[in-house]
């Protein structure tokens, strides 16, 4: 899952996936902009079936590859 997320972020932001570690803070590093975030929300829905609610849009959930993966796990646990 983390590799899929990493590859997506790399592609959406024209970044080398090698520099995106699990704990790289993608917003603080300036990798992500509004378009990339909107893209990511769409990707999570289409790839993992997870619909991000407005209240989910926080750094704790989207700040790094690890945080996104943890967020997806939490969301999936809620529906299963």
């Amino acid at each position: 899952m983390k590799d899929k997320i990493r590859d997506f972020i790399a592609e959406a932001t024209y970044t080398d996936p090698g520099i995106i570690k699990d704990d790289t803070l993608i917003f603080e590093e300036g990798i992500f902009d509004s378009m990339a975030l909107l893209n990511l929300i769409t990707f999570l829905e289409s790839e993992f079936g997870v619909v991000a609610e407005d209240t989910d849009l926080q750094e704790e959930n989207f700040g790094s590859v690890q945080r996104i993966a943890d967020y997806l796990e939490r969301k999936r646990a809620l529906v299963s």
Partner: peptide, 11 residues
């Protein structure tokens, strides 16, 4: 909410 966040703004 986005003003006090590091997240880029969502419209």
């Amino acid at each position: 909410e986005f003003i006090n966040s590091n997240l880029p703004p969502v419209f």
